[in-house]
Design a protein around this nucleic acid. Structure first.
Lengths: 357, 357
DNA sequence: GCAATTCCCTAAAACGTTTAAGCCAATCAT
DNA sequence: ATGATTGGCTTAAACGTTTTAGGGAATTGC
């Protein structure tokens, strides 16, 4: 049934070592023999057994990714692009991507990380949704197991990963909106243990300060980062006695929920209320109204994360530890803007005027 | 560095065979010894090497899933839930999920399937986005390699998989809308080589016939199943001299694009135009307006697909080949309905009246 | 008291590769 | 003609498990 290297060797009357080396392109096999081997391999449909190869080579050519926490509670567009990017990045390097889900239970999660790291199941890991005092990072660091993070903790410069610079982008957007009279800006965040929540919330508050806007703690909400969570939080904010007139959301899902809440309350988004999202994928473009977003290129980011991990695994030069990416700002109707794309240095034309009261 | 079974054996002064059997819970190891082994394993942090185990056991405990075609062109909510469901289903059975992406190139795709199947990389495969005359199915069948499909081809009853019954649901929905005077119904589909496109389009046309509505081929559009594709197709339809007043979409993404197009054209969805989507996840709930959907529970479906594959791999009783699931209909504002959920037999109350002209 | 049985453990083979070491014949340098 | 080099292959060990077959001591049956 299964065709092994041994059969190939028998058929061709060569040793298995020759077959192996011929297929791997070693120079000490004559061209003639190699061609014979190649032809026979193709003909018999021979593919090296992965387990045997892994065992012998002491590596798996596989990168692991463990879906954090509760199934079905992923912010969808984000995870989707992330996985696509990871898979594409991995397969471009001839790596596979091994994925597992785990329950929303820290013990189970750590168990999984341990099994994978210590059982040689993968060569490296990608960690996302990093948390404050993240046990996963502590464990992997202690084990000296190769990994990269999306959004490594700010106070740990030795943890390899990629940041998206929320600070600059938020400063520009908040200032831009403030100039247009949107002086009551609220933040719809995520779970407070997430690094991105910390980072983006702080960046937002700093931006408010820089724009001389009031910082009200009651306008800084948390959520589970789903659209339902966004709906609930926005509904609450918008029915306050003193409601904000601008909602900056931690991701697209939350922003969609906010749009829905506004619509239910009869509030015209883009006129009476500005909504700004983070992440920014196709979803945002086709929302009603189209969402203004701070756009991190998730697919490319995941792809780059893979490359980074690859370089860590293969030594090589240029081992940057942490990289910071600048997102792109997309102004759209949800903030009352004329659609417009703004790249990295974030110079938003001051004469952009719009119709928000 | 890496702790193997051998070290454990040395430490405890036992043979490696004993260790292995103790950890696997064989009854011919004394309870006392087993406890010693367990304790030592925990203490040293021993985890069996996966490659070695795979090689010896001749199985991988891994299920494969190959992302079809172009990166970034996945319908997002669908794939997201699918992967979450697959991962959850796999890990509930102690399986891992191996994922790879491949370029939009049939040859590369087949190469990948071959490597995985013949290289013993996975024990089974999940195939989605099945196509008419699908080479993947032909190959796997010929190889007698275990797999399951989402939407197996209708004319191949021997291919294991899960169907979602579009026929009944579409009949109900089309009739329901027809009763309300929506007599100009169009279909926004996907790429014509996909089985779901064939199935849903045919079901839609049959439903039109059953409801005595006109079947116009110019109202049957194809798309790439992205929201952009939906936008383009809807825009085209809605600017026809004789435009439809109801758009039935093959998935949520396309429907979102359609909503956007309608909004751009100043058409009030739920009043002048009904939009119906397929797939139905959170996305649809928080669209503006909320989308009426024919709701296939993608997460559960993926989970069940995994269970099916598991049963195929482990023999066992009840080896159903094909299963048909009944979707649930969610009436929401995008079709001018009062929000309402309708389960399987699809009896839509006839007195539901709404505001579409 | 002896054979049979049970209990707990071990030795060794096997899984399918890769790779280090080495061998033989042919070619080359002198 | 001889020793050194090279090209092209093979032998055998190793990777870390699981499993088959069996072995020795203790217990049991009579």
């Amino acid at each position: 049934m299964k065709v092994t290297i041994k059969e190939l060797a028998n058929q061709l009357d060569l040793s298995i070592a020759t077959i192996s080396r011929a297929l791997d392109g070693y120079p000490d096999i004559s061209e003639k023999t190699r061609q014979r081997v190649l032809a026979a391999a193709l003909h018999l449909g021979y593919t090296p057994d992965r387990a045997a190869r892994q065992l012998r080579r002491r590596r798996t050519d596989t990168i692991g990714f463990i879906l954090p926490a509760v199934a079905g509670k992923f912010p969808q567009p984000f995870f989707n692009e992330l996985i696509a990017g990871l898979a594409a990045g991995a397969s471009s390097r001839q790596y596979d991507l091994l994925i597992s889900a785990c329950a929303d239970d820290e013990a189970a999660e750590m168990q999984l990380y341990q099994t994978w790291a210590q059982g040689h199941r993968v060569d490296g890991l990608v960690v996302i949704r990093t948390r404050v005092d993240d046990r996963r990072i502590a464990f992997l660091t202690a084990q000296e197991f190769p990994f990269v993070c999306l959004e490594p903790p700010a106070n740990q410069p030795d943890v390899p990963g990629i940041h998206v610079d929320a600070h600059q982008a938020l400063t520009s957007v908040v200032r831009h909106l403030a100039r247009r009279g949107l002086n009551r800006q609220a933040f719809l965040g995520g779970p407070s243990e997430l690094i991105i929540q910390q980072v983006r919330r702080e960046a937002f508050r700093a931006a408010l300060g820089a724009a001389n806007l009031p910082i009200r703690s009651s306008w800084q909400m948390t959520s589970d980062m789903t659209s339902q969570g966004g709906y609930d939080a926005a509904h609450q904010l918008l029915t306050m006695k003193s409601a904000p007139n601008c909602l900056v959301c931690i991701n697209d899902e939350v922003a969609l929920g906010a749009l829905h809440a506004a619509s239910d309350l009869g509030i015209a988004v883009g006129k009476q209320l500005a909504v700004v999202a983070f992440d920014g994928s196709q979803t945002a473009v086709h929302a009603t109204p189209p969402l203004t977003t701070i756009d991190q290129p998730v697919f490319a980011l995941a792809y780059q994360l893979m490359e980074m991990l690859y370089r860590r695994l293969h030594g090589g030069i240029g081992l940057e530890l942490q990289v910071t990416l600048q997102p792109v700002i997309h102004l759209r109707t949800s903030s009352g803007d004329t659609p417009q794309e703004i790249a990295s240095p974030f110079v938003i034309a001051q004469d952009v005027e719009a119709t928000i009261r």
